[in-house]
Simulated assay, not measured.
Amino acid sequence: MNNQLPPPPAQMMQLITGFWTSCCVYSAAKLNIADHLKDKPQTAHQLAEATHSDAPSLYRVLRALSSVGVFKENEDHQFELTSLGNTLQTDAPGSMKAMAIAQLGDHYNAWGNLVYSIKTGHIAFDNIEGMSVWKYYEMHPEEGVNFIKAMSGLTGAVIQHVLPEYDFTSFNTIVDVGGGNGALLVAVLDKAPQAKGIVFDEEYVVAETKKLIAKKGFSSRCETAAGSFFEFIPENADAYLMKMVLHDWNDEQCLQILNNCNKAMKAGSKLLVLDSVIPEGNEPHPGKFMDINMLAMTGGRERTEKEFASLFSNAGLKLARVIPTHSPMFSIVEAIKE
Rank of each mutant, 00 (worst) to 15 (best):
247 H>W: 00
213 I>D: 03
311 L>K: 00
80 E>W: 04
108 Y>V: 04
315 A>P: 03
202 E>W: 00
218 F>E: 09
75 E>M: 07
69 G>Y: 10
50 A>S: 13
116 Y>R: 09
168 F>C: 12
165 E>A: 14
154 L>C: 05
182 G>K: 09
35 D>P: 04
187 A>H: 06
208 E>S: 12
73 E>C: 14
174 I>M: 09
83 S>I: 03
300 G>Q: 04
304 T>D: 01
163 L>F: 13
76 D>M: 13
230 F>I: 01
332 I>D: 02
25 V>N: 02
217 G>S: 11
338 E>Y: 09
260 N>T: 00
149 K>Y: 08
14 Q>I: 06
115 V>L: 14
179 G>M: 10
173 T>S: 15
6 P>E: 12
179 G>W: 11
7 P>H: 09
39 D>L: 10
87 T>M: 13
89 Q>H: 04
189 L>I: 05
259 N>D: 03
27 S>Q: 11
241 L>H: 03
86 N>Q: 14
30 K>V: 13
213 I>L: 01
141 P>W: 06
309 A>N: 08
245 V>S: 04
296 A>W: 02
293 N>R: 02
301 R>N: 07
40 K>G: 01
47 L>F: 04
209 T>C: 08
174 I>C: 08
229 F>Q: 00
172 N>D: 14
10 A>N: 07
38 K>V: 10
66 S>N: 01
117 S>V: 05
308 F>E: 01
12 M>I: 12
164 P>Q: 13
279 P>H: 09
221 R>V: 03
304 T>V: 01
88 L>Q: 11
43 T>G: 15
114 L>E: 09
248 D>Q: 12
91 D>T: 13
97 K>Q: 14
250 N>S: 07
163 L>Y: 14
156 G>K: 11
207 A>E: 14
52 H>D: 14
112 G>R: 11
97 K>M: 13
81 L>Q: 05
